[in-house]
Amino acid sequence: MPVNPELQGKQYPPTAPYLVGREKVREFARAVQATHPEHHDVEAARAAGHADVIAPPTFPIVIQQLTWNQLLEDESAGVVLERIVHGDQRFTAARPIVAGDELSAQLTVTRVRSLGGNDMVTCETRVTDAAGEHVVTATSSLVVAGEAR
């Protein structure tokens, strides 16, 4: 099944709140070789004006993946994990993510187009905090390979 062209414009419900843990931030920071003290040391983060350690710039992918799961579980979408190649990725931040944040994310499919037998799905995930304020928007293009002919 190819990607459903009617997917363009579709918005999924916001995800259940994700509580950002201090050790998760440290674990993710180690994994991306982020050594800046504000990711690891609470005192250093507080001295820089944050309530707790702050997450590296690509940490929102952890929350964004929860919204990708909605897309993959949507049988009408035609987006199959095994056929996806990640084309590009962007994070536009209003503020850094801080340990203790409760974040929710909402995915909108902004564009679907065919491209030489493949489909390109562009989606935007808007991440907000417990107060409903915008924290970061993650934008991705996923190339969904056409079925073998």
């Binding site: 504000e38 004006g49 590296p56 710039p57 990725q89 962007r90 994070f91 850094p96 934008t139």
Partner: peptide, 9 residues
């Protein structure tokens, strides 16, 4: 500094 990163693509 990590809090100065506004956009990354």
């Amino acid at each position: 500094g990590p809090s100065r990163i506004l956009d990354y693509q």
